[in-house]
Design a protein around this nucleic acid. Structure first.
Lengths: 306, 306
DNA sequence: TTCACACCATGCGAAAACGCATGGCATGGA
DNA sequence: TCCATGCCATGCGTTTTCGCATGGTGTGAA
């Protein structure tokens, strides 16, 4: 009784994907291959692992058991690949970086420019998303995150503290300045769907006009004059068509971190990128904070929260 | 960057075996296949995993790293296979049992006889060895062990307590009886290469004549009259050509346990075998102990010593 | 030195795995 | 009802992988 490891891998993919076609796409093989490998696996263990339904393959209890263990095997494989990557001291090959969409233009792009000039053999891939990609699964090598919790089991460096404030289109700003006691419309983010407390104290006539789930769209709405938006200072300052308004005085916002898995933290490509990234944020610190407070700009962070 | 899991498995086998041929034999494939898979793995990780030396393949540091993680993947595979086996409620297919060579004839053989009659579809394999096979790695499904420590992480049932005593050939026994003060030659086991303390007190002229590393050979030597041997009561009593001698009065010996991995403990075949094994030892208890002490004969044992 | 015996590299034909194309089947919307 | 869209099963030709056989090399014993 012995099972082909790739068949186990295929069972795992099929359990995750739910259909032959999707699993095949995930594995980069034809779906018939998935079907055949699953058949082999079932023959090997002597028990059906899936029910063939019209809507796709549904894992049996045994199939889930197999997938569970295969998933643990995959975790070990990922650990291995991270370790191998960590010892890689070459400045060539792929490097995957993830960062929030809106941070890339003003802050990351200049770094990317210099990096690809200095290290032309590195093929950089940017994954611009607010999703927290799983660095354990090697979905990215290095992440720039705006977060209170840069990531369990990850290693990180605080790039910058930042302040948030309120911004609006010049026309709206002028209208408000002309009638500060009038109604003030806010566009708020779904994760804090209220008018900021401080703003409500200063301008009791504030109200929520709309709730958005996407900051890019909020920027667009703000520029179109739909309302006042709370956002990080750097964003308001670097977005044309927005001016700061006094509804919300600058106040601490979420820090910016660069994080990576400890296994890959010291690899050549990740190190080289950090070596450009950190000075960039140090140089541009004025963009992020209000006033001249001399806060610390770097801090090593390590969590071992298993 | 993605690696074929079977290539990892092959790297592990090659690190363990040390040569293409040996690894191929272990995997059940031609050695050229091993060579090709290793080449693929090296191409995938971009680093050499082995040095090709005249005497075989020597793993590089990176190769060892790969093997280490592959070994952990293998451990998860074994866990899976055990779990699958544990849910197997059929009384057909393979069942591997290991027991000390000398216990098989007098005690296990009758059980095997009944078992294969009751369950003719089970193909039983006996691994008769004093080595402690690794039940985690599924080298056997069920083990009968004479041991103070039936096995970490295993589940067990104490089949029987037993006594040990001294035995010799009838001729030697007669000679000693005729001259109890004369020199008494012992054949001892390498793990306790001394004349038993109690025997030395009673017969100060005892001395070690030879040290053996194998109990079968010691039985042979004892029957040939080479000396007195300390052995379990059941062994002396069931071996023709030996008689008990008074040098060493019966005293506690190592217990006999039946153990299995918790994952497979309750599977149908293992349970069915235990159901015959336990009564057999209960019935034959008189063979193992001296006198009529009414000791407990069963005791569930569970260790979780990770 | 010479032979025997490990080991490994390479080339070729056989076998297995794979991708593609066709067809069947169920579901859901027009 | 009919069609469109997902699914999956099956058959066929191609690609890849594999096993075998040959040849080369270094080591140790006669």
């Amino acid at each position: 009784m012995d099972v082909d490891w790739d068949d186990l891998k295929t069972v795992l993919a099929l359990v995750r994907a739910g259909s032959l076609a999707a699993a095949g796409a995930a594995l980069g093989v034809n779906y018939t291959t998935v079907a055949r490998r699953v058949q082999r696996a079932e023959a090997a263990v002597g028990v059906p692992l899936f029910e063939r339904l019209a809507g796709g393959y549904q894992a049996t209890e045994t199939g889930l058991l197999v997938a569970e263990h295969a998933s643990e095997m995959e975790a070990r494989e990922n650990a291995l690949l991270r370790r191998l990557q960590g010892r890689d001291q070459t400045l060539s090959g792929p490097l995957v970086i993830t960062a929030p969409q809106l941070l890339i233009g003003p802050m990351i792009a200049p770094v990317l420019d210099r990096f690809s000039t200095l290290h032309p053999d590195v093929s950089v891939k940017i994954r611009a998303t607010n999703d927290l990609l799983n660095l354990n699964r090697r979905e990215a090598d290095l992440a720039i995150r705006i977060s209170r919790n840069p990531g369990d089991t990850l290693m990180g460096l605080r790039l910058c503290a930042q302040h948030g404030a309120s911004f609006a289109s010049p026309e709206l700003a002028a209208r408000i300045a002309a009638d500060p006691q009038g109604r003030i419309d806010w566009i708020v983010y779904e994760f804090s769907p209220q008018v900021p407390k401080k703003a409500l104290e200063l301008y009791p006539n504030s109200r929520v006009r709309m709730v958005f789930d996407d900051m890019v769209a909020m920027l667009g709405a703000a520029r179109a004059g739909l309302g006042v938006v709370r956002m990080p200072l750097f964003l308001g300052r670097t977005t044309p068509g927005l001016v700061q308004v006094p509804m919300l005085p600058p106040q601490p916002y979420i820090d910016i971190w660069v994080v990576a898995h400890p296994d890959v933290w010291r690899s050549a490509k990740v190190t080289a990128f950090r070596d450009l990234l950190v000075p960039q944020f140090r140089k541009m610190r004025h963009l992020f904070v209000s006033g001249t407070g001399s806060e610390e700009t770097e801090q090593v962070h390590r969590e071992t929260n298993a």
